[in-house]
Design a protein around this nucleic acid. Structure first.
Lengths: 333, 333
DNA sequence: ACAAATCATTGAAACGTTTCGCAAAAAAGG
DNA sequence: CCTTTTTTGCGAAACGTTTCAATGATTTGT
């Protein structure tokens, strides 16, 4: 039915070995025969069987990306940017949406990929270290891991928290609130910690910073903020939310209770999802540069495949100033 | 280094054939020996080589998804929902972001997938028909194609346009505007056509419907609408935009020129991206039900793999009523 | 013109599986 | 206790490649 390399060889009147060489090691076969082989392949519509090829060659020229899901802006950007790098280097990108950690372990060992990038919620330092023992080159996103064949790329979440603290303090904010993400989540914890540390350096003790739960969700943050306001608690000068979605939830609650952003209170997010640009007021936030992360991760895994040693890397962020934060005259220096 | 089935067989004191059977055809091997094999496999951390397996078994239990890119809400939802169905049926989902149509053709023939869903801009009916000649089961999204091993799933874009026309007419709108998408794009053309047809059935001739270019982009629609208003053209009763993004652009331009939505003018979108719920006013739009499409597509490709015949399917839409359209008293029946 | 060196091609083995047909062993029937 | 049937396990072939070592053909050097 479907043409194999044998058929091509027969059609071109050469041995299988020569046919293979004509296609994969063009330089060692006489131009004339090579052309004959290629022509035969074309005529027969030959497409090499990927499984035979990978089995024998002991490499798949595929790199994997393991994620929990693809819904959400980050994932698409990550995948697209990784794909671009991989393609340019002659690799396929194989995106695996995976529900349990064991299937990651399994797939890493079944020889279907030469290396992988792992961005998976429940992969912590311990799990990562264990996975890294396989000889498959691995890049972990948001995990502190570094080994012979494994690298980690950390989002500077603590640093992001600090940036927010500095920025808001610089605008004259003194009574701060933080909308927390998810307990145990690395980025969550780091953002909070960095924010509190940054404020402490400006002389604001962490006990004075009000913490609300947000769970990274718009709705949850909205409800928590509404409850907070309805209970008659004091309005802070500014809010730093653990992500844009919860910042947007806060703004909705604030507006609903008659407060204006940024006139009465400033709100700052984190992530810079595309939505943030379009809401009113446009959200001031910290951009985590998704595409750049993908590019970096792909390049890193290719580097590991080349045999270079693993390392720990950082992914920088930057403040994107829009309309949701405004200087506070009374206190600003 | 890495354990193969031979090692497992030796460790368990059985032949390779038995080892294989113990794992894949448990019923034909004595419980006692089966347990021994499984135990040996566990001890050696055995993971079957996917390439050997697929080569011999002549199936990969993998289904492919070919797309132009993963950025954009639709793709994530599509991938996640497909993944869920595939997983439940014991298949892997292999997402391929692909830059040229020939690599689709290639991948379809290299035996790395048992079937595929194709949602790729430049795959038109002609290209689809050609691809369908391969014996790989194929489901095309937004392409009119049906064959022995191939199905098409059409978005009811014309129907969506009609729904918008009916809805807006029912609210009392008589002077309508349509913000067009991209010329040549199937959904674009169909939405416009359906919208105009629908209005005609209500006695509004298509010449009276003002058409603006929107290119599916927020910024482009914004500029076109601004220009339109600044030139002193009459304000329509309602706008139906080809997608939510351009609807949002229109609203921004309208607000900027001092018009209120929906008090002065109604605006309706199409797609129901998540953003639409959060802007003010929350956008009335037509939901195209991304997840459902993915589920349907995955089920269909599995159906084709089972050997059933291809067919043509429709993907329904529904109006999501929010705040951006309001009844118009003067004319409403 | 002959040996040496280079070039082009090839047969066969190997990659890790599954599966077919057969043999051995066990169970059942008389 | 012998035959028949059923159960269990095995050897070997096959899937489609790549690649190694070897062979034969051609060119080079003297």
């Amino acid at each position: 039915m479907k043409a194999t390399i044998k058929d091509v060889a027969r059609e071109a009147g050469v041995s299988v070995a020569t046919a293979s060489n004509a296609m994969n090691n063009p330089e060692i076969v006489k131009p004339q025969t090579r052309e004959a082989v290629l022509e035969a392949a074309r005529r027969l519509n030959y497409v090499p069987n990927a499984n035979g090829k990978r089995l024998r060659a002991r490499e798949s020229r595929t790199i994997g990306l393991f994620v929990n899901a693809m819904t959400g802006e980050f994932y698409g950007a990550l995948a697209d940017s990784m794909n671009q790098v991989c393609r340019a280097q002659g690799y396929e990108l194989d995106i695996c949406i995976v529900a349990d950690i064991d299937s990651i372990r399994f797939r890493l060992q079944d020889h279907s990929m030469d290396g992988a990038v792992i961005f998976w919620d429940a992969v912590n330092e311990e799990a990562a270290a264990q996975m890294a023992e396989s000889d498959c080159p691995l890049v972990f996103l948001a995990v502190n891991q570094q080994g012979a064949h494994s690298s980690g790329i950390l989002f500077q979440s603590r640093e992001h928290g600090r940036m927010a603290a500095d920025y808001l303090y610089g605008l004259g904010m003194r009574r701060l609130m933080h909308v927390f993400g998810i307990a145990g989540n690395y980025d969550s914890e780091m953002r909070r910690q960095g924010f509190l540390e940054g404020l402490e350096e400006h002389g604001i003790p962490r006990e004075e910073v009000r913490i609300l739960e947000g769970r990274f969700e718009r709705g949850y943050a909205y409800r928590e903020m509404r409850k907070y306001l309805q209970e008659g608690n004091p309005l802070p000068d500014a809010v730093f939310a653990a992500n844009d979605l919860s910042a947007i939830g806060c703004i909705a609650a604030l507006n609903e209770q008659g407060y204006r952003v940024p006139e009465d209170i400033s709100v700052m997010g984190c992530d810079d999802i595309s939505l943030s640009e379009y809401i009113t007021p446009a959200l001031t936030t910290i951009r985590t540069q998704f595409e750049q992360t993908g590019t970096q991760a792909a390049q890193e895994v290719l580097r590991l495949i080349r045999g270079e040693a693993g390392r720990l890397m950082q992914q920088e962020g930057m403040i994107v100033v829009r309309k949701s934060c405004r200087i506070r005259k009374e206190t600003a220096g």
